[in-house]
C-alpha cells in the first residue's frame, strides 16, 4: 500500500512542476514550510519529520510557569486516552518561542523533568524568523514581554498525516474528548 502511495506521489511530482520540497503535499499543509529545527538532543529535525502520522503540536517555552505545564499534561492525558498501539503511532511536537534561552540542553532538562520519552516527544527550537512563520501557520499568537515571559495563546493542535490542521482545542484541563476522538479518527484513516 505504501509503495503504491510512493509511486503515485513520484508520478505527480514529475507531472507538475510543483515547488520543492512539497512533493504532492496538499496546499493547506503546514509542511509546505521548508524548515529544520533542532531537537532536545541537539539533532536537526525537519518540520515534516513526522509526516505519515498524526501529530499533536503546540508552542511553549521552558520558563513558562502557568499554562505550559498544563499543555504538557493535556497532551499526556490525550495520549493516555488511547490504546498502547494507538499511542505508538502518534507523535508530539512542542516548539519553543524562546530560541534565545531554550537551548537543546534546556529542552533536554525539561524533557527529563517531565519524563517525556524522546521516541515520542520532540521538544524543538529554531531561529526567531522561522518561529514566527510556524506560529503564523498554526495560528498561534505570542508576544515577548520585557521580563522574559511570553504572552501567548494556548492550544493543542492535531495535524493529520499530511500536515493539515485537523483539530485544535484550547481546553487544557485534561484530555478534550473531541480532540481524542479526532486523534482516533486520524489513526483509523491510517489503517489500510
Amino acid at each position: 500500500m505504501k509503495r503504491r502511495l510512493l509511486l503515485g506521489s513520484l508520478a505527480l511530482a514529475l507531472a507538475s512542476s510543483a515547488p520543492t520540497p512539497a512533493l504532492a503535499l496538499p496546499g493547506d499543509s503546514i509542511y509546505q514550510l521548508d524548515a529544520t529545527l533542532t531537537d532536545q538532543r541537539g539533532q536537526p529535525v525537519r518540520l515534516d519529520a513526522a509526516r505519515g502520522q498524526p501529530v499533536l503540536v503546540s508552542m511553549f517555552y521552558t520558563s513558562c510557569q502557568f499554562v505550559c505545564p498544563m499543555l504538557i499534561d493535556a497532551a499526556r492525558d490525550t495520549e493516555a486516552a488511547l490504546t498502547e498501539a494507538q499511542r505508538r503511532r502518534v507523535k508530539v511536537l512542542l516548539i519553543s518561542f524562546d530560541p534565545t534561552r531554550d537551548t537543546p540542553d534546556k529542552l533536554a532538562a525539561m524533557a527529563r523533568q517531565r519524563g517525556l520519552d524522546a521516541s515520542q516527544w520532540t521538544l524543538a527550537r529554531t531561529d526567531a524568523a522561522t518561529v514566527r512563520k510556524i506560529a503564523a501557520l498554526l495560528k498561534f499568537q505570542y508576544r515577548a514581554l520585557p521580563d522574559g515571559e511570553f504572552n501567548h495563546s494556548a492550544e493543542l493542535i492535531l495535524l493529520d498525516a499530511e500536515g493539515r490542521i485537523a483539530a485544535r482545542t484550547a481546553n487544557l484541563a485534561g484530555a478534550d474528548e473531541r480532540l481524542v476522538g479526532a486523534v482516533r479518527r486520524q489513526l483509523a484513516v491510517g489503517q489500510r
Binding site: 485537523a166 485544535r168 479526532a182 479518527r185 486520524q186 483509523a188 484513516v189
Partner: peptide
C-alpha cells in the same frame, strides 16, 4: 465500502466541531 468510509471519516475530521 472502505472508500466510502474514508470519505465519511475525512469529511468528519475536516470539520473542527460537530
Amino acid at each position: 465500502r472502505r472508500l466510502l468510509q474514508l470519505t465519511a471519516i475525512t469529511t468528519a475530521t475536516l470539520l473542527p466541531f460537530t
